[in-house]
Amino acid sequence: MSKALERLVNLALFLAEAKEPVSAASVRAEVAGYPPGQEEAAFLRMFERDKDDLRRMGFALEVDDDGRYRLDTSATYAATVDLTPPEVAAVRVAASALLCDPSFPYASDLRLALAKVAAASGRVSRTSALIADEAPEQQGRTVSILTSAIEARKTVDLSYENALGEKSERAVEPYGLFMHDGRWYLVARDVGKDALRTFAVGRILEARPNRVKPRTPDFEPPPGFDVSDHVSLPFQIGTQPPVEALVRFSPAAAWRAKSVSAGHGSLERNDDGSVDWRVAVVSLERFAAFVVENGPGLQVLSPPAAMEVLATGLKRAATAHA
């Protein structure tokens, strides 16, 4: 690494110090590390790779019409940002917890980000994370592959095993990823079925992105695509048409409305401090269980069918323990 490191650092310093745009020829003449007597074509390839490396590091290299290079300093260097001590602590806790989480897919980039924004010494809190608990390494690795494919808009061949244990091969256009209840999910168009599907990343046995023409996109995601539209609460999964339910959080429980609703449906505060939550429900049974599990302080006001399912269920639970 040390030769390449020296050359890259020298190149970065040279560009940073240059008062005017510089040509490839002057880079070759001035920057230590390019082998003397190297053929022109070999030098250009090496210089090309070095420029890519610098750009990956965050150096904004511009090239003018004459093929000369300059560093856009305002786009390269971070502006100072004054974070309060609690904010710095929050960034460091979140980042250092996830750095060691095998199910967090962006750990290596996070490490570099942390080095850039918050590497100041100081006590590191005791912290850890395991955001996906089942096969965390597999989920982290697969999400990392899928993220690259989403960004480059490349199709992916999936070997997938469904909940019934049936294996299949599918070509998909990946649009988005989300984390829910400790599992990563992929939202993608199943090309063969011409339909949008949600895949549990833990069930993807293998993900093979199309490596042909890596810089040319294979598809465009649907306009306005937002992965959060595909995240469901447990009672929103199923094929029946949804009905709207109204749940009231008592004034004492109102502060939990935001976290319980998790961005689904709408919340409205009433004068007495209670909060009304209107939300789409597919499975009344699961909805009833959800209300009980997230109580106390939740009251179902409609639809009547949901109230009935809830009453029947609670009576059953009481009877079974009488």
Binding site: R55, G58, A78, D109, K116, V117
Partner: peptide, 11 residues
């Protein structure tokens, strides 16, 4: 130096 896009995404 500013965070590259993948670094910013990770953060």
């Amino acid at each position: 130096v500013r965070l590259s896009a993948p670094e910013a995404r990770a953060l």
